[in-house]
């Protein structure tokens, strides 16, 4: 039996049907065909599925889809605004902060959550906030640099 789910997805009122057992990640990927959020482990250990739920970063693989009822969800597909890349996306490109790119959507979403709370993070803060996101390709060096470099433009110079 599928249940009715309504929530705000990347700024748009969205409705769909899902099974109570389906995770938010499954709802996004399988029901709504938004495949930007990735599955790396399906048990909350890699961060590839990171999305914002009411502004807080969560692993969407361990949140039920129905938990999003009436709430706001932001995914990687909602990061760029009006055809312009988010400063984090731009800096990831400039710093070569991705290799295979499978972890990238999760890192960008988690990094956005970081900058929303700490507009000018230290390296240690960035490492701590991103410790829930695994990257096996980059050794994190360029990811951390990209995040720190994106901070000024992401905060609009504040």
């Amino acid at each position: 039996m599928k249940s009715h789910l309504t929530f705000e997805l990347n700024g748009e009122a969205t409705e769909t049907f899902c099974e109570p057992r389906q995770s938010l990640l499954e709802v996004l990927r399988d029901e709504l065909k938004l495949t930007g959020s990735k599955e790396g482990c399906n048990n909350g250990n890699c961060g590839a599925c990171s999305v914002l739920l009411d502004g807080r970063v969560v692993n969407s693989c361990i949140v039920f889809g129905l938990e999003a009822q009436g709430r706001k969800v932001t995914t990687i597909e909602g990061l760029a605004e009006g055809g312009t890349l988010h400063p984090l996306q731009q800096k990831f490109l400039e710093h070569a902060a991705l290799q295979c790119g499978i972890c990238t959507p999760g890192f960008l979403v988690a990094a956005k959550a970081l900058l929303d709370v700490h507009p000018h993070p230290t390296e240690a803060q960035a490492r701590a906030w991103l410790a829930g996101n695994l990257c096996r390709c980059t050794g994190y060096d360029k990811i951390i640099r990209a995040v720190l470099d994106a901070a000024p433009s992401a905060s609009g110079g504040k």
């Binding site: 938004l34 495949t35 990735k38 597909e77 890349l85 490109l93 070569a96 790119g101 990238t104 959507p105």
Partner: peptide
């Protein structure tokens, strides 16, 4: 030089299609 990779935008916007993304 260090140009931006050709597949970069696809990958930072979540549009690049990996095997699991196939419908």
């Amino acid at each position: 030089t260090r140009p931006i990779r050709h597949d970069g935008v696809e990958k930072v916007t979540g549009r690049a299609l990996y095997g699991a993304d196939l419908q």
